[in-house]
Amino acid sequence: MSSLAKAIATGDLTQLPSRRDEDWRWTDLRGLLRTLPPKPDHAEVTTEGPFAALGGDVFLVPNGFVEGFTHIEGGPDNPVAQLRFVAAEAGSIATTVLVAVRSGQTLTLLESYEAQADGAVSDIALDIQVAEGGRLERIVLAADRAESVTVSTAAVTLAPGASYAQTILTSGARRQRIETRVSHPGQGASVRLDGAYLLHEQRHADTTSVVTHSGLGGVTSQLTKGVVEGQARGVFQGRIVVERGADQTDARMGHHALILSDKAEIDAKPELLIFADDVQCAHGNTVGALDENALFYARQRGMPFEVARAMLTQAFVGEVVDRIEHEGAREIAAAWVAEQLGRGQ
């Protein structure tokens, strides 16, 4: 149970993490939340989710009420599941959803966070299990409101030979943390963890991941990109742990961010904790402004500054979007990114 879920359950705000908690140093909840709004009632959802065009079963969680299903599972022919967390009104929500992909099954999980009213405080926990030979692609689109507070934690347990791919796209919120914890057994299992955060005004987004390699020959590839404007704050914390005996692990992590204004902020902590010697692990991290030469070139060819900037940032984020395997989801993601970066209109 996350600390926010505990605080919601007990009403005890001292349970909330603060800047003094190492893992939450850049995502202070205790300083932000002076009171917790009451739990909301059940709500009817009439809107369509961002992935509506792709069909598949829809699993709706309005105001934290898990409706009409106990868990989500895969199938033999790569079914699509839309999982929609809708905060229809202000209130504190804590909820848990189980996703199980059995042996040999596949699943494309299209997850969306849709806040429809200001003042929602949500804690969402996902328990994801992928059995031997199972394949799961999870695409998260977090379209929260500027005043939302969201903490989403996915605990992913993989069996040997399982494959897990994830792409998180977020435009941030008042405070938002999307955390993924992967228990990686190696032995043919592979993990891809991608993400992009596109933040403006005073929004905040925290993408945190912990991948623990416990068996031989695990592969992890991680790429997160960020673009921040205004007074926004992007946080990336990535930790790769290679336990004793997890030899021949190949883990690579990249985090690259653009700061487009003087008041925006990026905080990053890419960690490698290695307890085995026969490994290949690397991380790269860059933070900077847009390439002035590229910008100059585009403008010199007649492009207005705003268009040139949007084009370059879109190309920058495009690398993450291109790695999405599901074609329909990739197109929706690309359109969403373009819209966020001001090229959609």
Binding site: S261, K263, E265, D267, A282, H283, N285, G288
Partner: peptide, 29 residues
């Protein structure tokens, strides 16, 4: 050797839009 450990824990905090920070790390035997 099998029993040793190596960790890399960098913190990067960028608070303006005109700076360039690059970081790379590798761990191998």
């Amino acid at each position: 050797g099998k029993d040793c450990a190596a960790h890399t824990v960098p913190y990067i905090e960028a608070r303006n839009g005109q700076s360039v920070f690059e970081h790379e790390a590798t761990t191998t035997r």
